[in-house]
Design a protein around this nucleic acid. Structure first.
Length: 431
RNA sequence: CGGGAUGUAGCGCAGUUUGGUUUAGCGCGCAGCGUUCGGGACGCUGAGGCCGGGGGUUCAAAUCCCCCCAUCCCGACCA
């Protein structure tokens, strides 16, 4: 992609409305723009990152045996009346009426709809277990939207729902989802912890939260450096105000940490199947409620959380896994024919090797290109300057640690191959 | 929903205390021309504002008063 033909409106100055790094940087790097409190447009660069996150999540869901479907955002009130949550959800639910004055809501979550599907089509133990997921936009009229994408009123989430004939079967799927979530976070390259959590309004018996560690996180957790036990501060049994207390497993002192909740998995049991009459016939010929689990991971929140964890004073430092481009190719002068010819050549070589390149061919000073490059945070930078015209040498720099090396034209394929085999450059979309 | 703050050009801000020399300014960005050209370079020229909205007070309001709206932060709550 040529920078001059793409759409990356970067900002030199920090927008006044942004208080934390991820918010400021996602605005400055031209990933998003605000349309109202807690509501954002995704610009092309931001969308590329979202697609990569989605693709990693999708692959891991498929690997874990989940099946993708797509449920509507617009939902009639009936099912919510049945589950009792039309009232329970309160003002956090966006509600509207159709032309016939029927009540609808914009789905804040999808337990009701998916359970209705199960009610319709899961009749026998032979149909089970099933684990269904979607990547869908959610609407929640938050009391206080905050920190840009971290707490938005419209956001994208991967949510899955499993249906089993009994608790043992649920345990197996729950464990699979647990592991899939760990793999997602590891593939993206985030530092995280899994904690025991409160079940909240969703309800159910047991649940775990996946927390991305970050100083600005809203969630507090305790962690035992000794045995690895970790829990949400609310359920750790330690005093919420003062010290972190001692570990329930080994008695050692607990450390408190802060982070951003990115995923949450629940064993729901039969809460929704009971309320919505979702029953199946078991081996013994008897009607039983479907045993459910639900598993959510925030896609748009992941984008923000990743920035929150991975940035420096100059800008974003994307991990290769979700970077909008793998290589930022810079010609130091966009006005000079010789430079542009060289740039075009290297651009063709890289794209020919299936590398996602952002080719900065703009007619602006090199300084601007470097600053933008730092801001946008593409992992690897190829620089073509006078040195290239003289000796045919490309300067290669890593965004993360600033390491530099020189590369000749001939050694580009080898360089890329090495990166690919090190699984360093591959976008999930190309796998 | 309680507490706090802020709305002036696309972005960042000054001007509001004490109403009038301000025709409403500065920096960045944007457009044109020229010089630069490996870390947001320089010069000249130019476009861009119902000072968040409405209502008052006054000879006169960005500035004082009332109401509304929007945005952000803290809290309670939540993925």
């Amino acid at each position: 992609m040529k920078f001059s033909e793409f759409f990356i409106p970067t900002l030199k100055e920090e927008p006044g409305e942004a208080e934390i790094s991820s918010h400021a940087l996602s605005l400055r790097a031209g990933l998003i723009r605000k349309i109202a409190s807690g509501i954002y447009s995704f610009l092309p660069l931001g969308l590329r990152v979202l697609r990569k996150i989605e693709e990693i999540v999708r692959q891991e869901m498929d690997n874990a045996g989940a099946i993708e479907l797509f449920l509507p955002v617009l939902q009639p009130s009936d099912l919510w009346e049945k589950s009792g949550r039309w009232k329970e959800y309160g003002p956090e639910m966006f509600r509207l009426k159709d032309r016939n004055k029927r009540d609808f809501c914009l789905g804040p979550t999808h337990e009701e709809l998916i359970t209705y599907l199960a009610y319709l089509d899961l009749k026998s133990y032979k149909d089970l277990p099933v684990n269904l997921y979607q990547i869908q936009v959610k609407f929640r009229d938050e009391m206080r939207p905050r920190y840009g994408l971290l707490r938005a009123r419209e956001f994208i989430m991967k949510d899955s729902y499993s249906f089993c004939r009994n608790d043992d079967s649920l345990d197996i799927i729950y464990k699979k989802m647990y592991n899939a979530y760990c793999r997602i976070l590891e593939r993206i390259g985030l530092r995280y912890r899994v904690v025991e959590a409160d079940t909240g309004l969703i309800g159910g018996s047991s649940s775990h939260e996946f927390i991305i560690l970050a100083e600005n996180g809203e969630d507090k957790l305790v962690f035992c450096p000794e045995c690895g036990y970790s829990a949400n501060l609310e359920v750790s049994g330690s005093s919420p105000g003062g010290g972190s207390g001692s570990c329930v497993n080994c008695g050692k002192n607990l450390k408190t940490e802060k982070g951003i909740e990115i995923g949450h998995i629940f064993k729901l049991g039969s809460k929704y199947s009971d309320r919505l009459d979702a029953r199946f016939v078991d081996v013994d010929g008897k009607q039983k409620p479907l045993i459910m689990g639900c598993y959510g991971i925030g896609i748009t929140r992941m984008l923000a959380a990743a920035i929150e964890q991975m940035h420096d004073s100059k800008g974003i430092v994307w991990p290769v896994s979700i970077a909008p481009f793998a290589v930022n190719l810079i010609v130091t002068t966009g006005k000079n024919e010789e430079f542009l010819k060289a740039g075009d050549l290297v651009y063709r070589i890289l794209t020919g090797l299936d590398v996602e390149v952002l080719y900065d061919d703009r007619e602006v000073n090199a300084g601007i290109k470097f600053k933008d490059s730092d801001l946008i945070g593409i992992p690897i930078r190829f620089i073509l300057g006078r040195k290239f015209l003289d000796n045919k040498l490309i300067d290669v720099e890593y965004r993360k640690d600033g390491k530099k090396m020189e590369l000749s034209l001939d050694s580009i394929p080898g360089f890329i191959k090495k990166l690919n085999t090190a699984n360093n450059l591959k976008s999930p979309l190309n796998e």
